[in-house]
Structures are given as structure tokens and as C-alpha cells.
Simulated assay, not measured.
Amino acid sequence: MLLLAASIVVSLSIGSASVPLSDVWRILLNYVTGAAGDGGADPTAIAIVTQVRLPRIVLALLVGACLSLAGAGFQGVLRNPLADPFTLGVATGCSVGAAFILLFGYHMTVGMWLIPGVAFVTGIATLGVVVTLARARGAMNIQTLILSGVIVQAFLGAVVSLMSSMSQGVVNEINAWLMGSISARGWEHAQLVLPFLAVGAVVLIRYAMALNLFVFGERHASHLGIEVERTKLSVLIVSTLLTAAAVSVAGVVGFVGLVIPHLIRLIVGPDYRLIVPLSALGGGIYLLWADTLARTVASPKEIPLGVVTAFIGAPFFAYLLYRRKMQQGGTL
């Protein structure tokens, strides 16, 4: 929590227009408490902190927390530390809806909320297709579920590529969505994501003990009183809702749901009662700093957020795999 608070304050002071940390603390205190006056701070600095950077930072925290929680949920259900919100094709399903709206320009007539809304619906529909393909005799086999997700993801990825190739004037918009960004987002987007994060965190914490028992296998978990199929379906649905909510406002941002839960597991152990809440905090901090780098490294240009998370996450995860390989005597 201290790292989170420090990250917020430091990130608020970093940008093309630098704001001293002392001013940031004063502005935040006045903003949160609703105190009258500017506390001696520059009005321009107040506008930059409260109207430009703070909404973006809050959204980065929420999106990062959603993706990390979803990653923890998928890893627990699939019993695979390499699983993430993209394993079952949910993010790609969201991209299909967004690309469709951008291709035909419906967002220009209906409004800005059409893209997140349609992306959310197509993401949920993707999970429905994957679960339907994987279910047999009222049960879902984990291997079949993963295979179904890979097949659906490959197909939907081809659909997105087809729409991108068909587009002319909006190809850059589609590519920007696929690379992820929270630029030009405001408080309304944060308000959209917050309810899903609040409900999702509560549900996943409730199922944390069941996810701990899944480590011993579904049969053992069932013998210990866990309703296996109900638990799997509930966690998958909640994790999908978290993923769809994050992707619908930020586009495709990879590696957050893969790296952060895995890192938390290395730090605190395999107990999901710790992994779930700490993944939310870690994911928020990770995406906050990734977005800070995205908007400052090449200023005044901005690097796509998904590119930054990939540049940071891929080498780091490769290091984790190498470390695990060395610990196992040189074999993965």
C-alpha cells in the first residue's frame, strides 16, 4: 500500500510539465478533502494533476488490477501458472467487437460508449463459445478448455486481421486498439471499470480457498466438499468479466495478467488468499508505471501501452522461466 501511494504521487509529478512533489501532495490533499482555495499551488499545476493525470492514473490502477485478478483466476482454475486473460481468447473476442465498430464507423454516430459496450459483449460471448465447446456431459475438462480457447482465439485473431486488411481510413485506429492505450480516457471510463473490479475482487477472494484445493486435482477438491464445476464456471465468468471490462476501455494490454500473479506467487507462496488481493495491488502498480513510461519516454509522442508492458513483461517472464529451469537442474 505504501508503494502504491508513493507510485501515485511520483507519477503525478512526472510528465512534460513537471510538478514538484510538495505541490502534488498539497493539490491531492485539497482535492480529496474538498478544501477551498488552491493551497498556494499554481492553477496550471492543479489542472494538470486533477484533470489530466489523476483520471488516467486511477484508470491505469483499475485496469491493471482487473487484468491481474483475471490472470490469478485463470491460473487457479486451469492449474497453470502460464495462463492469463488471453488464454481463452476473451481479449481477442473484445477486439473483434471493437474492430467491427471502428471498421464501419458506427461509433461516430452512436457515441463513444459503443466501442466499450460492444467489446464487452463480444468478450463475454467468446467465453460462452469456449465453454460450450469444452463441456461434455455437464463437465469441463481443463485440457479441452484450453484447447478450445486456443482454437477460438486463432479464429477470432484471423477475423480481426481480415477487418484490419479491409479497412482503409481506420486501420490506424484498429491497430491502436490492438496495441492498447488509456490516453484520452477520463473519469467516466474509471467509473465503468470500478464496479466490475469491486465485485470481481470479492468473488475471487471468496473462492480463494477452493482454488488452493484445486492444486491437488479436481477429484480431491470434490472429496473435500468443493463444487468443482460450479467453482470453475464462476471463476471463469468473473475473470472474463474483469478482462472484458479492462480491455473494453484500454484495448489489448498483454503480460499484466501473466507476469504479476506469477511474481506474487514467487514472493508470498501458492496461497490464493494472498495471491488474489496482492495481484490486484501489484497489477495496478505495474500498469501505472508502464503507462507513466508510455507517456514520458518518447514525449511529446506516446508509446502504446501494450508495447511497454510487452517490453517489460516478456524479458522479465523469460528470466522467471530461466530461474525456474536452473532450480530444476537445467530442465523446464
Rank of each mutant, 00 (worst) to 15 (best):
I14F: 03
I101E: 01
P85R: 11
G157H: 07
W177S: 07
Y106H: 04
I115R: 01
L156A: 12
I151M: 11
A98V: 06
L321I: 15
G97W: 01
V199L: 07
V199D: 04
A246G: 07
A201W: 06
V19K: 02
N212F: 10
I237M: 08
I312H: 06
L145V: 14
V193L: 04
G149A: 07
V152H: 03
V171P: 01
A65P: 06
A125C: 11
A250G: 13
L266Q: 15
Q143W: 04
G89F: 05
G306R: 02
V52Y: 05
H189T: 08
R56S: 09
P116S: 12
L332K: 04
L293S: 09
G93S: 02
V32G: 00
I226Y: 05
V193W: 02
T33M: 00
L242R: 06
I27V: 13
G306F: 02
L321R: 08
A176D: 03
V159F: 06
I312M: 14
L4W: 11
I303S: 05
I260F: 03
I142L: 08
L62Y: 03
A154I: 07
V10S: 07
P270I: 15
P300S: 14
V297Y: 05
I182T: 08
D42A: 02
Q143H: 09
T144W: 00
R230H: 13
S234A: 14
P261S: 15
V49D: 00
T292E: 09
L78Y: 06
G123E: 09
L82Q: 08
L69I: 14
S7W: 01
V297F: 10
L127V: 10
V307S: 03
L59A: 10
L263C: 11
R185Q: 09
I151H: 02
L102P: 00
L241F: 12
G257K: 04
L29G: 00
I174E: 02
V268R: 03
L12V: 07
I260L: 10
S68D: 10
I48Y: 04
Q153T: 15
N172R: 11
A298L: 14
G186Q: 11
I275A: 03
L320I: 15
I264N: 08
P116F: 12
T132H: 07
M140S: 13
P43E: 09
K301E: 15
S299D: 10
A70V: 11
G283R: 01
G39I: 00
S234C: 07
G283I: 06
K232R: 13
S222A: 15
I285D: 02
S13D: 05
R323A: 15
V63K: 01
R324P: 01
I174Q: 07
L213G: 12
L67H: 08
V259T: 15
A70F: 04
L2Y: 12
S161C: 08
S68I: 13
G251K: 05
P43V: 02
V121L: 11
V77E: 10
G76Q: 08
G330V: 12
L233T: 15
F196W: 13
R219S: 15
V235A: 11
K301A: 15
A190T: 09
S68N: 11
Q191M: 14
R324E: 14
G149T: 10
L78M: 12
L133N: 03
L281I: 14
L4N: 09
T126C: 09
P304N: 10
N175A: 12
V215G: 03
A290Q: 08
V19E: 06
R295N: 12
M326D: 08
M112V: 08
S234V: 15
V235N: 08
I8Q: 02
